[in-house]
Amino acid sequence: MNWDDLKFFLAVSRCGTISGAAKQFNVQHSTVSRRIKALEHSLGVSLLKRTNNAYELTVQGAKIEQAAKRMESEITCVDGMLVGKEDSLVGPLRITTISSMSSGILMPIFSSFCKTHPHIDLHVASTSEAVSLTNREADIAIRLTNTPPEMLIGKRVVTVASTIYGNIDYLKELSQTSEPFEWIGAKCCHFHDTWTKQSCKEKTHLFSSDDALTILSAVKAGLGVTFLPCFIGDAEPLLARYVEPKADFDLGLWVLIHPELKQNARVVAFKQHLIKAINNIRHTLEGC
C-alpha cells in the first residue's frame, strides 16, 4: 500500500471533491483520480462513490479512512518530534485564516508581529477551505468556529458576535414599506450559509457569493441584507445593524496548533502575540 495514495484519498474524503484535493496538493485533477484508482485496485474494493457533485465514502472507504488517519497521525508525530524541538525565532511560520479577517482585523497584528520578530518569515494563507495542520500545510490555524477539530489543541481567544446588516438607505426605505428583505446568499462559510437559510423564507437570492469580501460589497451596494461579524459590519459607515446580536449567532475565535508543535518557539511566540493583541480589541469582536 502506497502512503502517497492514502494521502490523496484522505484529501478527497475531507474535501468531498477531486478538484479540492488536487488544489490542496497543487497537482492536476487527473493525478488525484489516478492515485485513487490505484489505491482501489491495490485493495480490491471501491472506496468512494459519486453523489451529485461530491464524493462520499463507501462502507469499505470509511474503514480505510479511519486506518489512514491513524497512519497520518503516527507519521506526523515522527516529523513533529524534530520540528517541535526547534527553539529558534528564525525561519518560516505558516498561518491559515479566513480572508475577511486577514485583510482587516488581523493585518495590524501580523504587522506588529513581523516588526517584533524580524527574522521569522510569516506566510499567511487566506482561505475558508480546510487546511490540514496534521499534514503540515500550516503551523497555526485561526478559525471562527464552535466545533474545532478534536485532533488539534488550541484556545478560544474571544467570542465573535454576528448579526444582520444592511445598507443604511436600504434599511430606511424598507422601514417605510411592507416589502420583505432581499437576502444576499452567503456561501462564504457553513455558519453564515445556515443562518441565512433559516432566516430567508424564500430560499432564493438575487445575488449570491462564496467570498466574504464580495458579500460585504454587495451589502454596501444595497443589494440586500446578510449576516456579518460585528467587527466587519460596525466598521463600515454605509451599513447599519437591523437587530442587535444574539447569542445564537456567536462564534468562537480559535487559535489552533498540532500537539507536536506546542513547544515550537515560533508557534509559541505568535500565539502569545495574537492573544495579547486580541484582548486589546475584545470589545470590537464581541460587538459591544
Rank of each mutant, 00 (worst) to 15 (best):
residue 119 H to M: 11
residue 114 C to T: 12
residue 115 K to A: 13
residue 98 I to G: 09
residue 114 C to Q: 14
residue 98 I to W: 07
residue 124 V to S: 11
residue 132 S to T: 06
residue 127 T to L: 08
residue 97 T to A: 13
residue 107 M to N: 14
residue 112 S to H: 01
residue 115 K to N: 11
residue 93 L to C: 10
residue 90 V to F: 14
residue 123 H to N: 14
residue 127 T to H: 09
residue 126 S to F: 02
residue 119 H to F: 06
residue 90 V to P: 00
residue 110 F to I: 01
residue 105 I to Q: 09
residue 105 I to N: 07
residue 94 R to W: 12
residue 94 R to K: 15
residue 127 T to Y: 03
residue 93 L to T: 07
residue 93 L to S: 07
residue 92 P to D: 14
residue 93 L to R: 09
residue 116 T to Q: 13
residue 117 H to Q: 12
residue 98 I to Q: 10
residue 90 V to A: 06
residue 121 D to W: 04
residue 105 I to G: 06
residue 112 S to M: 01
residue 102 S to W: 01
residue 126 S to P: 02
residue 113 F to L: 05
residue 124 V to C: 04
residue 104 G to Q: 06
residue 96 T to P: 01
residue 129 E to Y: 03
residue 113 F to Y: 13
residue 108 P to A: 10
residue 106 L to W: 12
residue 94 R to E: 13
residue 117 H to E: 13
residue 90 V to K: 14
residue 104 G to E: 12
residue 99 S to Y: 01
residue 94 R to Y: 13
residue 123 H to K: 11
residue 114 C to L: 04
residue 114 C to E: 15
residue 126 S to T: 04
residue 132 S to F: 04
residue 119 H to P: 00
residue 99 S to I: 08
residue 103 S to M: 08
residue 89 L to H: 07
residue 94 R to I: 11
residue 92 P to Q: 12
residue 91 G to R: 01
residue 92 P to K: 15
residue 114 C to M: 15
residue 92 P to H: 14
residue 99 S to E: 13
residue 121 D to C: 13
residue 95 I to E: 01
residue 117 H to S: 10
residue 94 R to G: 05
residue 125 A to D: 06
residue 126 S to L: 01
residue 115 K to P: 00
residue 107 M to P: 00
residue 125 A to W: 03
residue 104 G to Y: 11
residue 114 C to H: 04
residue 106 L to D: 09
residue 97 T to Q: 00
residue 93 L to Y: 04
residue 122 L to C: 10
residue 120 I to Y: 04
residue 112 S to K: 05
residue 116 T to I: 03
residue 122 L to G: 02
residue 111 S to E: 06
residue 117 H to L: 04
residue 96 T to Q: 10
residue 122 L to R: 03
residue 109 I to N: 08
residue 93 L to E: 06
residue 120 I to H: 06
residue 120 I to D: 10
residue 102 S to Q: 02
residue 113 F to V: 05
residue 110 F to K: 03
residue 132 S to G: 09
residue 124 V to M: 05
residue 122 L to A: 05
residue 123 H to I: 08
residue 95 I to D: 03
residue 97 T to P: 00
residue 131 V to F: 03
residue 115 K to I: 06
residue 129 E to I: 00
residue 116 T to G: 09
residue 98 I to E: 07
